[in-house]
Simulated scan of single mutants.
Amino acid sequence: MKPFTALTLFAGIIALASADNYACHSNVTVGCSNSASTPVVCHSRYGGIENVESTIQSYINLNLHKSYQYLLLSSFYNSYQKNRPGFNKLYRDLSDRSFDDAIDLIKHVTRRGGQVDFRAISQHPNSIAQSRLKLEEDELHSLGIALDIEKTLTADAGHVHYQSTHGRPHDPQTAHYIEEKFLHKQADSVRKVSGFVNDLSKIMNQPDPSLGIYLFDQYLEKQ
């Protein structure tokens, strides 16, 4: 009796699995058809990506905008008048990082079945076309600008994380991605740049800070 019961149960499981497989196959076949009247269901969108996609779009734009600002600062300190290779290197590295972060965010959106609207980037108030940056600042004030940029990037990463966890439905995969890729790194960056600001402010308070600024620039070049 037991072998018969086991065989019946096994056959039932196989039948259910087969039915599920055929049902899935049928749905995929219909959903992926090229008919204009058929709703598209063959995509990688799931969870709460709709609730956070526009926020990620804004964060992409912010990273591109800040990358451009850092590039301006880098070029300014690379001129023959300023000749600060250490500051040039610092701001070029930060520019490259923000640009790479924007590319990574674009990949995240497309991986989740979304699209990035580059027209929105060009029309956004924080777009590159709208960028305004005073380049007449000295080294200390330029570091103050960098610290403000890093805190802005950190705050916006936190906003994306908040939207991912508090939206309904929430999107845990995006929340984990932002936490792993951005929040930890931004905390380290804010700490590093704030340290530079405090160190250089002590040097600038000296009667003749020119040698100290030169040595500080050499220190940045070796980082």
Rank of each mutant, 00 (worst) to 15 (best):
V109Q: 13
D93K: 11
S95I: 00
T110Q: 07
Q163W: 08
Y70M: 13
R111G: 13
V40W: 01
A120D: 06
Y68V: 05
P125C: 04
L72R: 14
E150V: 00
T38G: 01
S58T: 04
A146R: 01
S58C: 04
P125D: 10
Q115G: 00
A102K: 03
A129H: 14
Y46P: 00
I121W: 01
N51P: 03
I60S: 07
F99C: 01
Y91S: 01
H65G: 03
A120C: 02
K66G: 00
S54T: 10
E139K: 12
T55K: 09
G86P: 04
D156F: 14
Y80H: 04
Q163A: 10
G144W: 03
S122W: 06
L135W: 05
H141Q: 14
Q81N: 13
E137R: 15
V40L: 08
H159I: 02
A120S: 10
K134E: 12
A102Y: 09
G31D: 14
E150T: 01
R97F: 11
V116A: 10
A146E: 09
V52D: 13
S37H: 07
I128K: 13
I103S: 09
L62W: 03
P85I: 02
S67H: 09
L71N: 09
I60A: 02
L153A: 11
S75H: 11
I106N: 06
S79N: 15
V41D: 01
Y162T: 12
L64P: 04
H65F: 15
D148R: 14
V52C: 11
A102S: 15
N51S: 10
K89G: 01
R119A: 09
Y80T: 08
F99S: 03
K151A: 00
T152K: 14
H161Q: 09
L135Q: 12
H161Y: 15
Q130R: 13
I56G: 06
G144Y: 00
K66C: 01
N126G: 12
L64C: 01
N126F: 09
L135C: 06
D96Y: 04
S74L: 09
Y59S: 04
E139M: 11
L71D: 07
I128T: 14
Y59P: 02
Y46I: 01
